[in-house]
Design a protein around this nucleic acid. Structure first.
Lengths: 174, 174
DNA sequence: CAGCTAAAAGCAAATAATTTGCGTTAGCAA
DNA sequence: TTGCTAACGCAAATTATTTGCTTTTAGCTG
C-alpha cells in the first residue's frame, strides 16, 4: 500500500509500476503527483457511514466532532488535508467541506425531528468545524475538552446540556 | 519578480539562475521547491505594521479583519497559505498563526486600556479568524458582511456596537 | 597578518523524473 | 465491417535532482 510509504518516496513512476501502466499515462491524466494525491485524498475523505446515534443530537454532535478531529489530526488525516489544499484547483477542497456539511445536516435534521433546540448548519461550520480545522492546520491539535467547549458555546441558550440531563436522571432515580 | 510567474513554471533551476547560484546550492539548503516556497511565503506574511487605530477596539478589529480576509483570499494570499500548508513541517504554519495572534493582541490590549469590553484572544482566533480561514481554504471567500456578523457574535453582551454609538451621536447632535 | 578550519558554494557526472511524438488498441456508432 | 475517437504503450528528448569532489569564503587563532 502506498499509504505506508514515506511521502517523499512516492513518485509517479512508482505508482505507475504498481498500477501496471506507463508513467506517461498518469502524467497525461493528472499532470503531476500533487493533483493525483489530491484526488486520492478527497476520495478517501468521503464518509462511509452516517453519524452515530447516541441519544440526543447534542451528544451525536459531540461524538461525531471528536471522531472528526481525531481523524483529521492524525498523521494520515493531516497529510490528506494538505494534499487537498496544495493544489490550486479548489474542487477537492469544496468536496471535502461538502462531506462535512452532509454529515452535520444529518445531525441537525435529527434535532429538528425531536424538537431539540440546535445550532444551524452554518453556525456549526463556523464555530465548531472551523476552529478545529484551524488548530489542526496552524496550531496544536485540538483535544476533547476543547471540542466540548466549542459545542457548549454554540448551543442555543436554554438547550439542555448533557450534564443537566444526567443530573435530572440522577434525581429521578434517587 | 517570481511573484508574477505562473506557479507551475517556477522551478529550482530557474530560481538558482536569478539568484546567480548553482541549483545544487538551493537543493542542499531547502531540499525541494515546496520547502523553499513555504519559507518565502511565511516571510512575506509577516506583518509590517500594527493594526490601524480607528477609534474603538471593535472598529479596529473590524477594519483589520477585513483587510486580513482580503489579503488572504486574494490569489497571491491563498497561494502563500497553500505553500505553507503543503509541507509537512509545521513551523511556518505556526509562525503564520503567531503573526495573526500578535496583531490581535495589540487590539485586545487597546480595548483593555480603554476599559472596552472585548473578547479574549482565544475567542477571536476561534470565532473570527478560524471561520474566515476555513472559508478561504475550503469554501467561498468571505465578504465584509460575513466578517461583520462574526464580530458581532463574538462581542461580549452589553458592549456598545458601532451602530449604537453612532445612534447616540445622532441623538446628541440633534 | 598568515594560516587553519568548518561551512557553504561551485562544478560536473550520474540518476531520475517529466514531456512529447508517434504508433497501437479498445470501445463505440454508423 | 468500417471509421472515429480517446486512451494507452513505447521510446527518445528534455529537464530536474542527487551526489562526489573541489574550491571558495568567513571566522578564528596563533
Amino acid at each position: 500500500m502506498l499509504a505506508r510509504m514515506e511521502r517523499a518516496d512516492v513518485t509517479i513512476p512508482l505508482i505507475a509500476q504498481r498500477a501496471n501502466v506507463t508513467p506517461s499515462t498518469i502524467y497525461r491524466r493528472w499532470g503531476d503527483l500533487q493533483e493525483l494525491l489530491a484526488d486520492v485524498a478527497a476520495s478517501r475523505l468521503q464518509p462511509e457511514t452516517e453519524p452515530l446515534k447516541t441519544g440526543s443530537a447534542r451528544m451525536d454532535l459531540q461524538a461525531w466532532a471528536e471522531q472528526y478531529a481525531d481523524e483529521m489530526s492524525s498523521g494520515a488525516g493531516r497529510q490528506m488535508i494538505r494534499d487537498i489544499l496544495a493544489v490550486s484547483d479548489t474542487a477537492n477542497a469544496e468536496k471535502c467541506s461538502g462531506y462535512t456539511q452532509q454529515q452535520l445536516r444529518v445531525i441537525v435534521a435529527r434535532a429538528e425531528e425531536q424538537g431539540e433546540a440546535f445550532p444551524t448548519l452554518t453556525e456549526l461550520m463556523d464555530f465548531v468545524i472551523s476552529p478545529i480545522m484551524y488548530r489542526i492546520l496552524f496550531d496544536q491539535v485540538p483535544n476533547s475538552d476543547y471540542i466540548h467547549g466549542l459545542i457548549s458555546r454554540v448551543m442555543p441558550k436554554g438547550a439542555p446540556s448533557p450534564e443537566t440531563a444526567e443530573a435530572t436522571v440522577d434525581v429521578s432515580g434517587a
